[in-house]
Each structure stands twice: as C-alpha cells, then as structure tokens.
Design a protein around this nucleic acid. Structure first.
Length: 492
RNA sequence: GGCGGCGUAGCCAAGUGGCCUAAGGCGACGGUUUGCAAAACCGUUAUUCGCCGGUUCGAAUCCGGCCGCCGCCUCCA
C-alpha cells in the first residue's frame, strides 16, 4: 500500500513520495523556549518523532529539522505584545539568551526522556538573523512587503493564495477580527516580517531598516529554506499554528521563491487535561517534569516518560488527547507489561541465545509485521500499531511460560518487538539503559542473599519468615516473584 | 459572531458503507499455576456505536435535525 499521510493542504490522505528519491526533508515547528515543556509539547514531538522513525524504518534517509524559537515570538499577535523570551528574562532577572539556553536544555532533557530522537538540526532563530534579513530584502524587492518607520510588513493582498492552508479568506478574517489593527499596516491582515526595536529593547540587530528584530513567522521560512531547500517534503506542527503561523510561512517562502514551499502539511491535534484546555489559570497546566515526578495535584503518582509516550501513541495524532491521571495510570500499567515481557526475553536470550526458530513462531510473526506496517502506512495509525506490540507481548509471554520453547524462537520474537515497539514506536526502552541509577549488579547480589534465605525458610515451611522477607523488600520497592524455575526480583 | 472537530463498553481508544454479531490497552470477574502472593497465560466483560429521522439490499460508518463536549479565529505544541 505504501505510506499515506493526511495532508492539511488538500484535506485528504495522499500517497507519500519524497521529492528526491530516498531522501526526505522534515521540518517541525519547535518550541519557544521561555518555559518548561508541557504535555502539549509531548504530544506534538512524540507524534512527529514517530513519523521520522517510521520514515527511517521504511528506508528513507531523513533530515529532521526542528527550530528553537528564542526571539521574535510575541505575547500578542497584534504585533504589540512583548517578546516571550524577553518577558521571561525580565521576570527571572536574567539575560534573554540565558533564559533561552536554560529552557532549551530543559526541552532536550524532557524530549530525551520521552525517547524522542534528536532532530538532525535544531536551528535557533537568533542564529539566523542574517538569513531572515535576506528573506525580508527579497520580499521587499519583489513587492510583497513594505516598510513603515523601521518595521517591515508582508502585504497579504499581494499574495493571492493567502488562506489556502487554513481555508480562510482575508475579508472574513478582517471582519471577524477581535484585535486592534496596527496603524502602520495597510491591512489588518498584514503581518510583521521585521519589527523596529525601541532603544531599551534587549534583543535587537542592525538591519537595512534600522535596529530591530525578526517577526515570529519569518524564522521558520528562512531556516526551513536554508537547511531543506526551497520545497520541503513534510512540514509538521500543532493545529493551533495552522493559522496564522503556517499560512504566513507559506506566504513568505512562496512569494520569495516562486516555488511550492511544502508538499505535505501535517498537523497534530491538541491536548486537554481532565477534559479541559490546559491553562495556567485552570490549575491543570502540567509540565513534563511534573508528570515524570508526580509533583502535581492532579496526579496520584509519578509516571514513566514511556508511559506518557504510550498514552500519546494510544490515540491518533490528529485526534485530541485528554490527559488524566486515570488515562496515564492505564498507560503506565500497559507499558510495564511490555517492559516485563522484554526483560523476560532479554534474560532468557542472554542465557541461551543460539538455535533455530520454530517455523510456527515465524509464521505468527509475519502477519503481525504486516498488520503493523499497514496501520502505520495509513496515516500513522499508532493505536493499531501499538496493538500489534501487545500481540507480540502476549506471544512472547506464552513462549516464555513454555519451558520447551526453542531459544531461536525467543530471539525471533525479540527482534520484531525491538524493531516495531522499540525502533519505530519507541515504547520499548533500549537494553543499554539502566533503570534505576543504582549499582544494579551489587544490589542484585544483596537481594539474591535474601532470596536464598527466604527459600530456606519456605523449604522449612516457615512461611511467616518467608513472607516477612518479601514484605520488607516490597516496602522499599522490590517485588519478589516465584517462578517455576526460581525466584526473581524486580522494581515495583 | 465566523470556521472546524468530536460524542464507540466502568475508563482510554481503533474502526468511517458489507470481512464489525465493533481492534487493542486499563480495570473488573472466573479459571490454570502458586504454601500464599505476584507475574504470566486462558476465558468473560458493547447484538451495539449521543438522540431522532432519512438514504441504501445493507450504516458506528452517508444525509438532515436535535442534544452534549471541545478547539481555532488572541500567545500557545
């Protein structure tokens, strides 16, 4: 069938083919770094992470660009608001670049924990002022922009296709606008490419129009062009940015280049928390650090980043997702089950790695792989893809329960589970990642001594002593499980 | 006010004209196993897809109305 993606531009699913055979350029709108990443960021970046992972699974060579906005994003789209990073800098009494650096690191840290692969390029807006000025100059030369008192605006009336992505027309927008039009603009729909900076404005750069700073929409066009060319295969972003941000990106890039800017526009839907839009005033604003540590009044416990990831992938990227403690809890239980099965496989394979796989097992794996690919090909249906992972988990556990299973069969199941659940969906943690951070090998030795003492007590039918050992270990988070071939321990 | 989306079991969620007498996960219940547990495995858990009407041989899926929820249009991923 081949990969099909829902293209916001055509409003339907289309077969995906890259412009250049074998190579795909992906640009995703990155965060504005003025605060810690929250659940909304998680949904967006996990969704596009899976897109990139799946493209690579299909054999494409992917260049993944995701910007970091550290300047120009105002608190008010009427172009009168304050720069968000500058506002945070004033609040925290730091230099804006220190704010940007701090929250950029925080963002990468959270994305790493969510098991998102790092973008190949994470360009900063402030590092591409020259490119942005060049783009403005081009737009002025071609008559798509005009300067007023040191600021430059895009003349929307000149770009007749403005509105094609979001399905709006300019007249309606102006009629329904709730914001005060800037007196400098020819039309309320025009947007800033370059803004004149007042002398006390911290972030400003010299330009042909005097000291100033770039408009928010400009960076994405300039940086996407620079790293991915005039026409890029896939541009992703949040649905809320479809208008005006992405519409403006198209206008800038296509007016400057006379070429289609983006072939596939992908938009992921929004998140709610406990059924309502996440907002600071509603007391349901949960950032990722809070989710991972459980330090929020809406949460009953800390959640593994992979549980957050799994909850996101349990629904479609174009559907809204409601985060709730109950939903996170369910995802955590499910992810624990996957992790347990993987752990069991790794242990048995380490003990006896060699051997032929059973033909019956191979015969059961093939349809699962096919089902997985069909689901992912259908506009990244991760919910169905995840169901395949659970089918694999059940198969793995059945084989593990059966002492006669050929080691080769376990290896075969493990490889598929790693490939689909690990490489593509990223809900299986790599074997090299330590779970606790403690010296597990030494701890294992200690717990084994206790297991032996308990085994001796059980042999002597002193169940009170045996249970006491288990209960005391349980109290510090270590669970003992009696299996047919002996007792094993794990973290609760 | 303008535009768009959603409403599927206790909860999350896939499916969008016949293979659906509706995936998968969580939870619950029963069974196997166990000293007891835990985990795992097996089974049960929506004759029904917000409500009403229509189109069709056939609808969760298409159309109309109604009710409810949400989002965008204003910074947001």
């Amino acid at each position: 069938m081949g990969l099909h993606l829902y293209n916001s531009l055509s409003r339907r699913k289309e077969p995906f083919e890259p412009l250049n055979e074998g190579r795909v350029g992906v640009y995703v709108c990155g965060p504005t770094v003025y605060g810690h990443a929250h659940l909304g960021h998680a949904k967006s970046y996990v969704s596009f992470d899976v897109l990139v992972r799946y493209l690579r699974y299909l054999g494409y060579s992917v260049t993944y660009v995701q910007n970091i906005t550290d300047v120009g994003h105002l608190t008010d789209d009427a172009d009168e608001g304050e720069d968000k990073v500058a506002a945070a800098a004033r609040r925290e009494q730091k230099h804006p670049m220190a704010i940007a650096e701090y929250y950029t690191r925080s963002f990468f840290e959270d994305m790493d924990r969510l098991n998102c692969v790092r973008p190949d390029i994470s360009p900063r807006a402030s590092g591409h002022i020259i490119e942005q000025i060049e783009l403005v100059k081009t737009l002025l030369e071609k008559g798509y922009a005009y300067e007023v008192g040191g600021s430059v605006y895009f003349d929307v009336a000149k770009f007749t296709e403005y509105g094609k992505l979001s399905g709006r027309n300019i007249e309606e927008m102006i009629a329904g606008a709730r914001i005060e039009p800037s007196p400098d603009k020819r039309s309320p729909a025009d947007f800033a490419l370059w803004k004149r900076a007042e002398p006390n404005h911290i972030m400003q750069w010299p330009s042909p129009w005097g000291m100033g700073y770039p408009g928010w929409h400009l960076e994405c066009s300039a940086m996407a062009m620079k790293y991915l060319g005039r026409t890029i295969d896939i541009h992703g972003g949040g649905l809320e940015n479809q208008f005006p941000h992405h519409e403006c990106e198209i206008a800038q890039a296509e007016a400057a280049n006379d070429a289609q800017f983006v072939r596939f526009w992908l938009h992921n839907n929004m998140v709610t928390v406990d059924g309502q839009k996440m907002g600071k005033s509603l007391n349901n604003f949960i950032n990722l650090k809070q989710a991972f540590s459980g330090s929020h009044e809406r949460l009953t416990r800390a959640y593994d980043p992979l549980a957050v990831r799994q909850l996101i992938l349990n629904s479609h990227y174009r559907s809204p997702l409601d985060f709730s403690d109950a939903a996170l809890f369910a995802a955590q239980s499910g992810n624990d089950r996957i992790a347990e099965a993987v752990r069991g496989l790794r242990k048995r394979i380490a003990d006896a790695p060699e051997g032929q796989a059973d033909a019956d097992v191979l015969g059961r794996l093939e349809p699962l792989r096919t089902k997985f690919e069909a689901a992912m090909d259908d506009d990244l249906n991760t919910a169905v893809a995840l169901s395949v992972v659970f089918d694999l988990v059940r198969l793995a556990n059945s084989l593990l329960d059966d002492g006669d299973t050929a080691p080769g069969s376990l290896t075969a199941v493990y490889e598929v589970l790693e490939r689909l659940g690990g490489d593509v969906l990223g809900v299986v943690r790599g074997a090299d990642v330590q779970a606790g951070g403690v010296d597990e090998e030494r701890l294992d030795g200690i717990v084994r001594i206790l297991i032996e003492q308990r085994a001796a007590a059980r042999k002597g039918k002193d169940y009170a002593a045996a249970d006491a050992i288990r209960q005391q270990l349980d109290a510090i988070g270590i669970v003992l499980e009696d299996k047919p071939d002996g007792t094993v321990w794990r973290w609760k």
